[in-house]
């Protein structure tokens, strides 16, 4: 019984890892740019599919992770420079633009990739069964947790230890003043959007290896990432960490004890947060 609980907690942490990589990118872009990228799920999916093709062609999983992440980052850069930048500051056009992008990407995925569930093959050396404290658990899941901790730490360093991060945080608080101080806010917007796209692409490769990719899967992913940032508070890195851990555990334990209701359970914290603390657990009242 004890063993079962350990597995459940580990499962919850694995879920949390993927939710964090997804949610942190979205929350970052929202916090600074006030634009909710509804194409985030599509970025995830495209990143996963690209990674799948790389694995299929070369069998090299780390390469797939890099290609998936960088390709989406590049796409994010192009999209931000050529389209999103033009409607900056206008909520509705911004959001609708990201919706359009997500539709285009999902259709492109339908043309180029299988219309069935596919999954990235993780090589055996990255997925050895690891036995810790008498419990055997897939190594790849530990790797995912490690990657997401690495991402969390890197983001923290970028946000709190670099000039760029200071500018970003200042921009979150008051973007007008920041641009008045002579900081090129447009450049910072681009950097943050690219970072957010990079994270979505990485999440796609991770998620496509640990779970599977299938047409239409982008909306599920988008919903989950929105739940993460609504619970955690939009724009808050710590919020994304805490809310993905909470949601991951709810998903894991929900599936073990009330599988029929597991999907609804994850919306309970969202409903509670919206009712009691609309700015999110760690969001700031603006």
């Amino acid at each position: 019984m004890e063993l079962k609980f350990t597995i459940l907690i580990l499962n919850g942490l694995t879920q949390a890892a993927i939710l964090f990589v997804l949610g942190s990118g979205l929350t970052l872009a929202f916090g600074l740019m006030r634009v909710v990228n509804l194409g985030h799920g599509a970025f995830y999916m495209l990143g996963g599919y690209l990674g799948w093709s790389v694995v299929k062609a070369t069998g090299n999983w780390p390469l797939a992770l890099i290609v998936g992440g960088l390709a989406i980052a590049l796409l994010g850069l192009l999209f931000e420079k050529t389209m999103l930048g033009r409607v900056r500051g206008r909520d509705l056009p911004e959001t609708l633009l990201t919706v359009a992008l997500s539709m285009i990407i999902s259709d492109i995925c339908l043309i180029f990739w299988a219309r069935t569930a596919i999954t990235l093959n993780v090589p055996q050396y990255l997925n050895p069964p690891i036995t810790l404290l008498g419990l055997t658990y897939p190594g790849f899941r530990y790797l995912m947790m490690a990657i997401s901790i690495f991402i969390a730490v890197s983001l923290w360093v970028i946000l709190y230890k670099t000039n760029l991060g200071r500018a970003v945080r200042a921009g979150v608080d008051d973007r007008e003043t920041v641009s008045a101080l002579g900081i090129n806010i447009n450049k910072i917007y681009s950097i943050v959007f690219v970072l957010s796209a990079l994270l979505a692409g990485l999440a796609g490769v991770l998620g496509g290896s640990y779970l599977q990719l299938s047409p239409g899967g982008d909306t599920t992913i988008l919903t989950l990432s929105l739940v993460v940032i609504i619970v955690g508070g939009m724009g808050s890195l710590l919020g994304a960490v805490v809310s993905s851990i909470i949601l991951g555990q709810i998903m894991s334990f929900g599936l073990a004890f009330a599988p029929q209701y597991s999907y609804f359970l994850i919306f309970i914290p969202m409903a509670l947060v919206l009712a009691l603390r609309p700015q999110g657990l760690f969001g700031r009242q603006i």
């Binding site: 459940l8 694995t14 599936l255 029929q260």
Partner: peptide, 18 residues
């Protein structure tokens, strides 16, 4: 029998551990 809604979860490992 144990049931969960289709497509609602992608991680069955908790159900498997149970």
């Amino acid at each position: 029998s144990v049931w969960s809604p289709p497509g609602s979860t992608s991680d069955f490992s908790s159900m498997i551990a149970s």
